[in-house]
Structures are given as structure tokens and as C-alpha cells.
Design a protein around this nucleic acid. Structure first.
Lengths: 198, 198
DNA sequence: CGATTCTTTGAAAACAGTCAATCTGTGTGG
DNA sequence: CCACACAGATTGACTGTTTTCAAAGAATCG
């Protein structure tokens, strides 16, 4: 359980035994069943979440009842609702598990205290944020300038393992196209236009 | 010139005389004429930029020669190419001035030193980053889930002053629609369908 | 097996992009 | 001051893409 987190974190940033112990002392491990909600729209996001096993998804429920998927968070990734966590305001989004999952949770105050008292952890956190920022910026560019095919291709090359693990209609939602369109895009690639002859 | 920056920064975060002096000692003020490039694709983004006056724009030049606008940066905003600045890799984007502008520049090493030596400045910087992250996340949601009308409306309410200052084809580029479509959207709002009668 | 969820397909309608032409306003040089 | 060029905005006609709706075909799970 927590050992998995230790293995991950020590691989990416050097932490002392004491620092690890401190992190562990404030952490809570939680198992989630498929479909279980971890954060519901309207609640304040109280935790910073690290995914040990499984797969989470952040999504927004629109007025007409449709779900818009903002992000997939597989094992060894951090997750939380950024806006709600930072401002301690009611979240507009939901987080749930797409597979049976295991996560580590830290209460916001505890986690911020950890960042303040473990400088190297703060640096690591800042690096993660910077990377996410770059990624999300590229996603914007994709969204406003690429064709649906290109968006799908970019997804395939960026997240091949996610593609294998989630239903296609969720990929469609993440890309901002209808599931029917995604289905047709995929089919067109396998079986492109046949009439190249006269 | 630099006094404008001091006025801004002291309004948003408390800095001592010494800290201000330190920031000033490493800053460089630069005037830009309309259309002048501040960062060109392929160069490494060496500076953190604060816009004193005028309006900058970050954009990507696509293979087919079209420009995709990623961001507008008016006075009192920070700007730089995130990815290139953080990783010191060649930038994929360009930054230029849409109006005659004035900016303050800090070399990356200098600025990072400032953040390290002025904790309150680091906090402020982190807050800005968090806010931008939230905003960009909402932009993603817009892009993947809203109609063109809704995207335009959101732009109007979020950036009314930018709308007045840039040509519409740039707004179209920012939103990811063609300039003709934007023109029709705007016209439809002024003059909606007239046949509501029998 | 039966129920549910997911995916695919077809046909029609809505929507957005492209191309070409025109219109508008602005600014420059003669 | 006018003529002209230029950048920007609009419009119409057409094309291409995407959505929507409805139905049916897979796959998965209890």
C-alpha cells in the first residue's frame, strides 16, 4: 500500500527516512470500487490524491446531464480538483474511479505543511505543476487548431494505455467529439477510402 | 516606467523597499513597437515578462502558415513561453506586440534567484500560476463542450476590453473558429431569426 | 441467460469551413 | 485633399464535417 507510494516517490525525488515517515504519518490509504465517487460537485476538495492503483477520472456534469471528461488519472499520478483545492470553494467537478483503485490521501492543510517543511517535496510539486501546465497548454492548442482525426491520433500516441482501459465514449468526451464521430474516425483509419482507382 | 511595476506589485503583495530595489536592480525595461517580436519560434525563452503598457500575444505558427493565438497578455499581466522558459528548450511559439507596448524583463536565472530570496514573491508567483491553471482548465472545458456561440459569449464576458482592442480574426483564432464563422455568430446575435410568427 | 453497457451504422439535419467577391475604414503618399 | 493601397469585416454559395436520432449489433457482467 503505502510502500508503493514510497517506491514511486523515492524514484523521482530523494527523500530521507524521516521525511518519508512524516509523509506516511499524515497519509491515509483508501480503496475505491469502480464507480465510487471521491469528490462530488458542490463539495470542497479537501484532499490531495495520489493514485496507487487503478484509474480515476475528473469530469463535469453539464446542465443537460451529459458528462464532460476533463482528465484521466492512472496509477502514479496526482489528482485533485485544482480550483476547489486551492480556493476551498465548492467544486464544479466530480472525481470517480473507472476501475477498482487504491489511493493515498492527504488533507490539504497537512499536505501544505509537508510542502513547507520538506523543500525538496515542494520543488517536486512545482515541477509536476509546471509539466501539467505545459501539457494542458498543448491540449488547448490541439483543441482549437486540430481536426478530430489529429486530436484522436494525439491521444493515441500520448495515452495508449488509457485508450485500452476506458470505453471509447469517454475518450470521445475527453476529445470533445460525439461517440459516433469517434467511431467513424477510427473506422476510417483502419479502412481508408477504397476508390483510389478510376 | 519601472514605477508602474512597483505600483502594481505593491498593490498585490507587500514588498519591502529593499526587495523592490533588488527587483529593480535586475530588471530591464523595454519598449516594443506594434508587430515587434519578443520571442521567436526556435529561440529559447530567456525572460520572464511583465507587461506595463500595451498588449502582447502568444501564438503558434502552423505548418500551413496559419497563426493560432494561444493567449493575449494586456498591461499588468505576466507573460513568457512556459515550456521553453522552464526547460530552456527552443520555443514552439512566438510572442509579439499587438500594440506599441512597454515591458519589464528579468533573465530567468535572475528571476528564479529573486523568487528564492523573496519568499513573498514566490508565494505570489505560485498564486498567479494556480489562477492561470484554473483559467486554462476552464478554457479546455469550453473548448471541448461548448458551442461556438457559447465560446464567443464566454470570451466577451471574460475579456471585454481585449475584444475592443484586437481584430476579430484574432479572436476567431483564439476561439478556434474561422473568421467568417465568428462574423456570422456576431451577426446572428444582433439580428436573430425573425420568423417567430406563423 | 438476461440485462446492461458499449459500439457501430445509416440517414437527415445542423453546423462550420472554404472560396470568392464585396464592403468598410484607415492611413499614406502624391 | 484626393486617390490608392491595405487590413479587416462581411456576405453568399458551396462543400465538407459533425451532430443527432434511431436502430441494431457486440461485449460484458452478474
Amino acid at each position: 500500500m503505502f510502500e508503493d507510494f514510497e517506491a514511486y516517490i523515492t524514484a523521482v525525488t530523494p527523500l530521507s527516512k524521516d521525511e518519508l515517515q512524516l509523509m506516511r504519518s499524515l497519509a491515509r490509504v483508501k480503496k475505491l470500487r469502480r464507480r465510487q465517487l471521491l469528490l462530488q460537485e458542490g463539495e470542497v476538495c479537501r484532499y490531495k490524491i495520489f493514485v496507487l492503483k487503478g484509474l480515476l477520472r475528473n469530469y463535469r456534469l453539464k446542465d443537460d446531464g451529459t458528462e464532460v471528461i476533463l482528465r484521466f488519472a492512472p496509477e502514479n499520478s496526482w489528482n485533485f480538483d485544482h480550483e476547489s483545492y486551492n480556493n476551498q470553494t465548492p467544486s464544479k467537478n466530480n472525481i470517480d474511479a473507472l476501475e477498482d483503485s487504491e489511493v493515498v490521501l492527504w488533507l490539504r492543510d497537512d499536505f501544505e505543511m509537508l510542502l513547507a517543511s520538506i523543500p525538496i517535496m515542494k520543488e517536486y510539486s512545482d515541477r509536476i505543476k509546471a509539466t501539467s501546465f505545459d501539457a494542458i497548454q498543448e491540449r488547448i492548442l490541439m483543441n482549437i487548431s486540430a481536426t478530430s482525426e489529429e486530436k484522436y491520433q494525439a491521444f493515441v500516441t500520448a495515452f495508449p494505455e488509457i485508450l485500452r482501459r476506458v470505453p471509447l465514449h469517454m475518450v470521445a468526451s475527453y476529445l470533445g467529439v460525439s461517440r459516433e464521430t469517434l467511431s467513424r474516425i477510427r473506422h476510417a483509419q483502419v479502412n481508408p477510402t477504397k476508390n483510389n482507382g478510376i
